[in-house]
């Protein structure tokens, strides 16, 4: 259910943006979602459409980019991606949360948990129509 919370947060940011930039109309959103984030892409899109259905933003183009995990190894200093293994039990590639270089378990995830409203695609409102959304 927290996809609804995320969608609500996005709408709040859009309203704040609109207050600051009244000469621009928002036509699209770019969202970043880490592969280890507990949020479902389709549900975020669904709730955004629901929350925006009575506004003039029903045709908003929602682009969600998945961010691959990046780790930092506290033992050898390696910073980079991790290995994945294909285990038929799991219906996805299972991440190997160890350092790719020295096999240490002492790693920190530095990318892959994003849940960001990265940017908005905007269109400058023609002068005669200024003041309208």
């Amino acid at each position: 259910m927290h996809e609804f919370t995320i969608a609500k947060e996005i709408v709040m940011h859009l309203n704040e943006f609109k207050k600051r930039q009244d000469k621009l109309t928002i036509i699209g959103l770019n969202i970043e979602l880490g592969e280890f984030t507990f949020a479902n892409e389709e549900q975020i899109k669904f709730w955004l459409k629901e929350l925006l259905k009575n506004t003039n933003k029903t045709n908003l183009k929602i682009n969600i980019k998945r961010i691959k995990p990046v780790v930092y190894c506290n033992k050898c200093g390696y910073s980079g991606n991790i290995k994945f293994s294909a285990d038929p039990v799991y219906h996805f590639l299972l991440p190997d949360l160890r350092c790719k270089k020295c096999n240490s378990k002492k790693i920190d995830l530095i990318k892959g948990r994003e849940c960001n409203l990265k940017s908005v695609k905007v269109k400058k409102i023609p002068r005669k129509k200024k003041g309208l959304l």
């Binding site: 940011h13 943006f17 960001n116 940017s119 905007v122 409102i125």
Partner: peptide
């Protein structure tokens, strides 16, 4: 007028 472009927000939700 009418130009389309991206504005970075980088808001952690």
């Amino acid at each position: 007028d009418g130009e389309i472009f991206d504005i970075e927000l980088s808001e952690d939700l």
